[in-house]
Design a protein around this nucleic acid. Structure first.
Length: 848
RNA sequence: GCCCGGAUGGUGAAAUCGGCAGACACAGCGGACUUAAAAUCCGCAGACCGCAAGGUCGUGGGGGUUCAAGUCCCCCUCCGGGCACCA
């Protein structure tokens, strides 16, 4: 038996067109790929359409797409296609965040070059994205590890250097012994490296490059109030991260001190200063170091405390550390009262915040209270709800509607006013001022690793640090570098790279061998998309100003702090450099939920990873994408169930079968605007179509509950399916059938692009389905002429009656009372209230 | 400790403005088609009582507002996330 005979036997002749995504999808993708202009945005100069920039966060090219990517991109692609159909000039690009450690680690492990490994991964993932049918404009692809891109990192770095926004400083830095490099504060999670959750981060003293993000702390914070299109959650996280705290600095003179030594504290409660009973220093406060150097006993105590703080910080237990301290034997003078206060060293005071010194007011601070109780320090009440009620339990920390007591000339003042007046008083008298502190620290960007952007400066013994002149950019990352993990940057072991000449004096000089944090790359990549092939500037301002801000940015909430705060910062810097006009990168941000399996995030270690490739191989790209949108609303976590994908596949098969069945009829029927003389069944079908259009259109405009959009399309298809006999019998006009299938295919286009394109052609239409106008819901056709009204008696449902949609209240109430079941329940009982909600329900309240 | 989310059938979920709880699917059960199976199609399906008609209960728990509460208010439990001796 030949194989052809087998095919003949298994292919039922009456069903010649089965849904075959593996035939449709690659065929259409090949056709789309052959036309690179298909998804390219219109040129700025000629486009008359309004612009729409939709962007999904660019991935790290690990080699394979995971389900999180699939979900992220399915959301963005549905939106991009929808906006295209709504007549927007859509920019929907994609790129690769391709510098970073995994390439180096893979290179060490497999003995390949990071560049080769990365570019291979990119090629592989691009293929996967294309197989998924994502509508990216590949002519704008951005690959951050290529010199065409990273030279502009260097250029921007030099611009920041000119403006003193990039600077070098010796400081304590976070060091991951596993990555063998420095980490930014944002990359330290619970004392551990963000890439190595079980590796404790060490503190090292190194000279590092920083970006002055703190210059923009206020703008970054205040700007959040206007980002109404961002999730509140992200805004709160950024507010916490920036951590602005308004208060005052007060300087205390050290008592009996010959060299006029002072200690400055930061406090948000200067109003409580009359209740201060001691001054507490962080164990690593400079003055403590100074005193300890001449006091062996104190030195031992301080070292112990420091070790204890470090351990607690590493294990994320800083807050639980029992409070303790040691007296220094010295005192300071409270400048407000002239009182002598003992100076202690306390383990709950942190050097990294404020001034590393606090005044201790036990009566009005939980921590100070605990400390003072333990060591028997005086607890003096200076704040009360009012002058008469002054015996509430301590510590009393309320600020609002409280007044000062026993506070000299400020007694009786309200707390908030007293804070203003007392800071001014301190300032006038030279021992303090109003001030603001931030949790946000400057962004350390030096990395002692190979696979990143070289920092474009050189060091000359004669001329010092010199920026690389612009015409010498890019500083190319050398190839064939030994990546062995030992101290120091791998670049420092490449003499051809290190040894250069000073741009100032032409004498011998050494290049900077650190590379930039990869978050620099992703801080501005979305501007590059607007003019991706520009080789004389990072991008033309004209292009960026046309496209920006991004209308909709979509990505995971895990970037709420890192990427999303850095890129807001760069936007402000680039604005101040004069490159762009916008102050925020994106007006709307959407953070999609995680993809989980068996209740846990998919991960190799849990063995619950579902491969997108497998899903596409089994069910096709359309079914896989559509399931990702159908299984849960996009902002919630999504439990991946393969049976669900199979269900969507079956649904698409039904769509395919029905549409192809009526395709010939569709092709033979002229489009007619007049839909008069419709049969009841035809009317019904059209009504469902237009209700579905209305529902989906509404959802795209706000809620994005694509799961219910797809459910409504399923209902439409169920109804078409139920009308099959009537369509076949001629009870529904060809014009109606034509309308319904045409509408169905258009509605499906954002969710199942391949099938809709295939069916669009099958229906006899030419061209690209995503260039068709989005269907408009006709309110008249969508209107129900008969509605169902639930009738309640005393709030309990009795029956649902059908009434004319236009019926008035009295008619409906009468119909309700006339119903047998209702009549039985209200018989002989006085009706005390009749509630009628138009179009919704009737409730008869009876007595007894 | 503080700040965000969340909790609804066997499962994913729906109910957009306080108005029929469980749409749409998945899994399940029954049936049709088939020699048989797959595929497909039709039907059933919150729980409990009942042969049925029907009734009672039901959106994490407790209270409240209302003619009417998954939805609003108060208190509590659990789960997820973020922040945290931040002075």
């Amino acid at each position: 038996m030949s194989s052809e005979q087998i095919v003949e036997q298994t292919t039922a002749p009456e069903e010649p067109k089965r849904y075959q995504p593996h035939e449709i999808e690659p065929r259409l993708q090949a056709a789309w790929d052959a036309d690179p202009s298909l998804y390219a945005a219109d040129p700025i100069a000629t486009s008359k359409k309004p612009k729409y920039y939709v962007l999904e966060m660019l991935p790290y090219p690990s080699g394979k797409l995971h389900m999180g990517h699939v979900r992220n991109y399915s959301i963005g692609d549905a939106l991009a296609r929808y906006q295209w159909m709504n007549g927007f000039n859509v920019l929907h690009p994609m790129g690769w965040d391709s510098f970073g450690l995994p390439a180096e680690n893979a290179a060490i492990k497999n003995n390949t070059a990071p560049r080769e490994w990365t570019l291979n991964n990119i090629a592989e993932m691009r293929k996967q994205m294309q197989r998924m049918g994502l509508s990216y404009d590949w002519s704008r692809e951005v690959t951050t590890c290529l010199p065409e891109y990273y030279r502009w990192n260097q250029w921007l770095f030099l611009e920041m250097l000119k403006r003193d926004l990039a600077f070098r400083r010796k400081s304590k830095v976070n060091w991951c012994p596993n990555c063998n490099t420095v980490l930014a504060n944002e990359q330290v999670i619970s004392g551990c490296c963000w890439r190595h959750e079980d590796t404790l981060v060490e503190q090292r003293d190194l000279t590092q490059w920083f970006f002055r993000i703190t210059n923009y702390a206020d703008e970054l914070l205040d700007g959040l109030d206007n980002l109404e299109g961002w999730p509140e959650k992200v805004r709160v996280m950024q507010r916490n991260w920036i951590g602005r705290s308004e208060g005052a600095e007060v300087t205390f003179a050290v008592d009996q001190c010959t060299d006029n030594m002072t200690i400055t504290v930061f406090t948000t409660r200067i109003d409580t200063i009359f209740g201060a009973s001691s001054l507490q220093l962080a164990p690593d406060h400079p003055i403590v170091q100074h005193w300890a150097s001449g006091d062996a006993e104190l030195s031992v105590e301080v070292d112990k405390m420091l070790a204890e703080q470090k351990t607690a910080r590493d294990t994320d237990m800083l807050g639980e550390l029992p409070k303790h301290g040691v007296p220094t034997g010295r005192s300071v003078i409270n400048p407000f009262t002239g009182e002598k206060l003992p100076v202690w060293i306390a383990n709950y005071v942190l050097s990294g915040y404020g001034t590393g010194a606090v005044m201790s007011v036990p009566a009005h601070d939980e921590r100070d209270f605990e400390f003072a109780t333990k060591y028997g320090l005086p607890i003096k009440r200076v704040i009360a709800p009012n002058l008469d009620t002054n015996d509430l339990p301590l510590p009393y920390t309320d600020k609002a509607e409280s007044v000062l007591i026993d506070s000299g000339e400020w007694t009786g003042e309200a707390v908030l006013e007293a804070q203003e007046k007392m800071s001014s008083f301190a300032e006038k008298n030279g021992f303090g001022k109003k001030t603001t502190t931030y949790r946000l620290k400057d962004w350390g960007v030096s990395r002692q690793r190979y696979w990143g952007t070289p920092i474009p400066v050189v060091y000359c013994d004669k001329c010092g640090m010199q920026p690389v002149p612009e015409n010498q950019l890019p500083v190319l990352l050398p190839e064939n570098v030994d990546l062995a993990v030992v101290d120091g940057s791998p670049l420092s072991r490449v003499p051809e790279f290190v040894n250069t000449t000073c741009p100032q004096c032409d004498g011998p000089a050494r290049r900077e061998t650190d590379t930039m944090d990869t978050f620099v790359d992703s801080s501005w990549y979305f501007y590059r998309y607007t003019d991706a092939r520009n080789n004389t500037a990072p991008f033309a301002s004209e292009a960026a100003n046309y496209w920006f801000p991004i209308d909709q940015y979509i990505g995971g909430v895990e970037h709420a702090i890192l990427h999303l705060i850095y890129s807001r910062y760069w936007t402000k810097v680039m604005r101040d450099i004069g490159l762009i006009k916008n102050s925020e990168p994106a007006t709307r941000l959407f953070t999609q939920g995680m993809v989980i399996k068996n209740g846990a995030k998919m991960s190799k270690s849990k063995g619950n990873v579902v491969s997108p490739d497998d899903m596409i191989a089994k069910y096709g790209a359309d079914a896989t994408r559509m399931y990702a949108l159908f299984a849960a609303p996009p902002d919630r976590d999504l439990e991946w169930q393969e049976e669900g994908v199979a269900g969507v596949y079956r649904f698409l098969s039904r769509v395919h079968r029905l549409t192809t069945k009526y395709a010939a009829l569709h092709r033979a029927t002229e489009h007619t605007q007049t839909l008069e003389g419709l049969s009841v069944d035809g009317q019904h079908l059209l009504r469902t179509l237009h209700q579905t259009i209305a529902k989906i259109t509404l959802d795209f405009s706000g809620r994005w509950h694509f799961n219910t959009c797809i459910a409504s399309i399923m209902m439409l298809v169920n109804e078409i399916s139920a009308s099959e006999a009537k369509m076949d019998a001629g009870d529904i006009s060809p014009a109606t059938i034509r309308e319904v299938f045409r509408g169905l295919v258009l509605l499906l286009a954002p969710f199942a692009p391949f099938l809709s394109q295939d069916l669009w052609t099958e229906l006899g239409h030419s061209g690209i389905v995503f260039r068709q106008p989005w269907p408009v819901a006709d309110a008249e056709l969508a209107r129900e002429d008969e509605i169902e009204i639930p009738v309640q008696v005393n709030g309990k449902l009795v029956i649902v009656i059908k009434v004319d949609a236009a019926a008035d209240a009295d008619t409906i109430k009468a119909a309700a009372k006339a119903d047998e079941k209702v009549a039985v329940r209200i018989a002989g009982k006085p009706i005390v209230k009749e509630i009628f909600v138009p179009g919704k329900m009737v409730n008869l309240v009876v007595k007894g």
